[in-house]
Amino acid sequence: MNLEYTVTQSDNNNAPVMLVTGSAKRIGAAIVKAAHRQGYSVIIHCHQSEQEAQTLAAQLNHTRSHSAAVIVADLAVVEEPAALTAFVEEVINTFGQLDAVVHNASRFYPSPLGSIDHIQWNELFLTNAKAPLLLSQAFLPYLKKQQGCIISLLDIHAHDKPFLNYTVYNMAKAAHRMMVQSLALEMAPAVRVNGVAPGVNVLPEPDGDQALDNEQQQRIVRSIPMQRIGQPDEIAHSVLYLVDAKYVTGEIIAVDGGRSLTLAGSLV
Rank of each mutant, 00 (worst) to 15 (best):
V72Y: 00
D117C: 12
H159L: 05
L153I: 01
K173V: 01
A83T: 04
E52V: 06
F108I: 05
P110F: 08
L60F: 06
A100P: 11
I151L: 05
V78Y: 01
W121H: 15
N170S: 09
W121M: 12
V168K: 10
A129I: 02
H157S: 12
P132S: 09
E50A: 14
P81Q: 03
T167M: 03
A131Y: 03
L124Q: 13
F163Y: 12
L126A: 10
A131R: 03
T63R: 15
E79T: 06
V77E: 06
R107C: 06
R107T: 10
E79H: 13
N61T: 13
A138L: 10
A68I: 08
T55M: 10
V77C: 10
D117Q: 15
D155H: 06
E50V: 15
A69L: 07
E52R: 15
V70M: 13
A129G: 08
T127G: 05
F95I: 07
A175M: 07
G114N: 08
A105H: 02
H62C: 12
A86C: 02
I156D: 08
A53E: 01
T127M: 05
S49Q: 10
T55I: 09
G148P: 13
Q137M: 06
F87Y: 07
S106I: 06
H159P: 03
A69M: 12
